[in-house]
Design a protein around this nucleic acid. Structure first.
Length: 444
RNA sequence: UGGAAGAUAGCUCAAUGGUGGAGCAUUCGGCUGUUAACCGAAGGGUUGCGGGUUCGAGUCCCGCUCUUCCAGCCA
């Protein structure tokens, strides 16, 4: 009977079959301890020379790391470890003897591992991350589905830059000129919200920025909900309810894999409503109290400006300083207009303020969500498009949404890989996706 | 794109300007409870590329290429 390793505890005392790969093997004269993996987990096998045929014994001694095998034996309790199971092996079928596996059970450099990503994903840690990623995306989809959001897939080929700022990847598009790879589905999602009430997109997005940090990749997955008749506060209510659901579900269902990553789950358990909500002005106060300067690049090098001036966006050191006193995600809202995108609605009480919100993850993981209430007034939006020097003809359909039954509406964008990095406590975002794309990496 | 560090065996690293080594992986041998098992042996090198200084360069100098880390852009 073929059984997956993650279900092995249900079969103690029974004879079962595992189909998988040899992760590592230790031998001790008349005993061998092969570690077997099958994608769901790892189990140690025990091969005793006097319990198996001569052929099985000899076949085992031929096996190399990552050889594919089908193994049959009896599940037993580990003699020393509680709740750990072993397989007392009787039969072995070799599917293929592996050539020497490049990723040995020793340390490796990150470049080598990246070059061998197609093999690196077999390692315990990487497989655990990818299973948690699956759980996160499943949780996101279920939350949205259960709360009445309609999945609204938006195009990847687009005729223009959404926010007009970032550099985009471009390609030829038949007789219609250049097409650009989408950096956000938001504008299309707004049209979806006017049609369907509450929608979300979940798909790949592309940024051609030459960003070489631990938090940036050129191709990443983004989830963008968009809700008609939601104001900024409704948006923040949704964000905290949504994040609590995802994080709590992941720690409930993926405790084993989080354990492999040695994730401190007590920190994730604190991610419960309500989250702190502070305005940009209050965030600036924190920076000024901590005497953290704005660092500006000048022709002669760097200039430190303090106190931190109003109107500037926060960099990584500022985000860290703002978040360090909290043990939950922090929602920073009401930003200077000049620091935010053209489509954000201005605060009716203060025209210098945009009704945007950034969510900063705790433990120094930085921004995982950026959202806002959208500008719903035709004239104000038109003005902003002109101010940003965006091609008006490409935004006619977007402006239409403000002509035909315009309503207050809000939404946000969640970076899936940043969420994975935070929940898994990863050093670098490159491990949060099966195949990372960065400015200097497109292979494998 | 700026700043810093680096590139030596398949991998991770060592080597005062003077015959390039170790651990892991591979092959062979040993060991009845191993946990990155251990013990013994063997094979394995155009020291990133190009030039220069020197009797002699992995080591010093110049140029190039690539990588990592930090910063900006953001999700």
């Amino acid at each position: 009977m073929w059984v997956y390793i993650d279900k092995i505890s249900q079969y103690v005392g029974q004879e079962i079959t595992i189909k998988g790969w040899l992760y590592n093997i230790r031998s001790s004269g008349k005993l061998m301890f092969p570690e077997l993996r099958d994608g769901t987990g790892i189990i140690q096998g025990v091969v005793s020379k006097k319990e198996v045929s001569e052929k099985v014994w000899e076949d085992f001694s031929k096996l190399t790391q990552e050889s594919s095998v089908i193994v049959t034996g009896t599940v037993s309790q580990h003699p020393k470890k509680e709740n750990v199971f072993e397989l007392q092996i009787k039969e072995l079928e070799i599917v293929q003897i592996s050539e020497p596996f490049p990723i040995t059970p020793k340390e490796h450099g990150i470049e080598f591992l990246g070059d061998n990503r197609h093999l690196w994903i077999r390692s315990t840690r990487q497989a655990a991350i990818l299973r948690i990623r699956n759980e996160i995306i499943q949780s996101v989809r279920e939350y949205m589905y259960n709360n009445g959001f309609i999945l609204f897939d938006t195009p990847i080929f687009t005729p223009n830059a959404c926010e007009g700022t970032s550099t985009l990847f471009s390609t030829d598009y038949f007789d219609l000129g250049k097409a650009y790879l989408s950096q956000s589905g938001q504008l299309y999602a707004e049209s979806g919200a006017m049609a369907l009430g509450k929608v979300y997109t979940l798909g790949p997005t592309f940024r051609a920025e030459n960003s070489m940090t631990r938090r940036h990749i050129t191709e990443f997955w983004m989830m963008e909900p968009e809700m008609a008749y939601y104001d900024l506060n409704d948006n923040m209510d949704l964000i905290e309810d949504f994040l609590e659901y995802v994080v709590q579900r992941v720690i409930k269902n993926k405790a084993g894999d989080l354990g492999i990553l040695q994730r401190d789950i007590s920190k994730l358990e604190k991610v419960k409503k309500p989250f702190p909500r502070i305005t940009y002005d209050e965030a600036i106060e924190i920076l000024r109290k901590k005497d953290i300067a704005l660092i500006k690049k000048t022709s002669e090098g760097e200039e430190q400006i303090r106190p931190f001036p109003w109107g500037e966006d926060f960099g990584a050191p500022h985000e860290e300083a703002i978040v360090e006193d909290f043990d939950k995600p922090v929602m920073v809202h009401r930003w200077p207009v000049q620091a935010k995108a053209f489509y954000m609605k201005r605060d009716p009480e203060n025209r210098d303020i945009a009704l945007g919100v950034d969510v900063l993850a705790p433990e120094g993981f930085g921004e995982i969500i950026g959202g806002s209430q959208r500008e719903d007034n035709y004239d104000f939006l038109l003005e902003r498009i002109k101010e940003h020097d965006l091609p008006l003809e490409e935004f006619q359909w977007y402006l239409d949404l403000r002509k035909f039954g315009s309503v207050p509406h809000s939404g946000f964008g969640l970076g899936i890989e940043r969420l994975v990095s935070w929940i898994c406590n990863l050093e670098h975002i490159r491990e949060a996706i099966p195949y990372v794309r960065r400015p200097n990496r497109i292979r494998p």
